[in-house]
């Protein structure tokens, strides 16, 4: 465990002594802030009757609308964070140090994954001031918001696991970035195919829809399916990542 945390510490250290973390976090906050502004603006332009009739409270309106922006920002920001994680080690030759040290590949991947998760957690924490401003003029229903943030975190963790896997495939960061999207977008867009198939195919498409899972959570519903899907995808991509690194030795 201490080996894993040692790797995690170094990962976080590297993010913050180079401009990567700052750039990614600022980009993330800009998009989320913009989304927040739009949703509050729209909400305040509704007249009272519309709010009363449409059962629109600040949570379902602002938070739900905002969650689209958070997801979008995560999809843009996180692959930029994960693309360098393993590819850079290979390019710099530090992979040789790591792989001749007494740590297993699983420890290596987990240590690095935890490092990226820490940045994700920080990014989400930094959006809290937005929610606190809601608290000034309405009740944002904090428990429901907690569920929404758990959803964001899980969604982000899946993106990072995919990004880590992509990063293990190549020495080139840009290639790693570009490979992340073809793996991520189908999971996000599979919802569009819903209803186009029948029977089990439709169920599979629905079950794999990361967007659906994330939107459900953002409504304040902690849904077991969403958690199982996210954890399953995380496990799958981290497992593949370990396999890729191990097999790279045999080439």
């Amino acid at each position: 465990m201490s080996s894993i945390l040692n790797l995690t510490r170094r990962e976080i250290y590297s993010y913050f002594v180079s401009p990567i973390a700052y750039t990614v976090i600022i980009m993330f906050l800009l998009i989320v802030g913009l989304g927040f502004f739009f949703s509050v603006f729209l909400y305040s332009s509704l007249n009272d009757t519309a709010i009363a009739e449409g059962n629109q409270n600040i949570r379902t309106y602002v938070i739900q609308f905002m969650s689209f922006w958070v997801n979008l920002a995560l999809m843009l920001a996180l692959p930029a964070l994960s693309m360098r994680v393993l590819s850079e080690e290979r390019k710099n030759g530090t992979a040789e140090l790591l792989m001749t040290s007494p740590i297993t590949t699983t420890q290596l991947v987990l240590g690095k994954f935890l490092g990226t998760l820490a940045i994700l957690a920080l990014m989400l924490l930094l959006t809290l001031p937005l929610l606190i401003t809601i608290d000034f003029w309405a009740d944002p229903e904090w428990p429901a918001l907690g569920a929404a943030y758990l959803g964001y975190f899980l969604f982000g963790a899946v993106i990072l696991a995919i990004g880590l896997f992509a990063s293990s495939l190549t020495e080139n960061q840009i290639v790693a970035l570009l490979m992340t999207y073809p793996m991520l977008l189908p999971l996000w867009l599979s919802e569009l195919l819903l209803g186009r198939f029948s029977g089990w195919a439709n169920q599979v498409v629905g079950a794999l829809s990361l967007r659906n899972a994330s939107l459900t959570m953002s409504l304040g519903v902690i849904e077991s399916h969403a958690i199982v899907l996210a954890c399953g995808l995380m496990f799958l991509f981290l497992f593949l990542c370990v396999q890729v690194i191990d097999s790279a030795r045999w080439r």
């Binding site: 250290y13 590297s14 710099n92 530090t94 992979a95 040789e96 140090l97 001749t100």
Partner: peptide
């Protein structure tokens, strides 16, 4: 082990 190119992290 010191490999051919020293395994250093330039930013550290």
């Amino acid at each position: 082990y010191l490999c051919e190119a020293p395994p250093i992290y330039r930013e550290m």
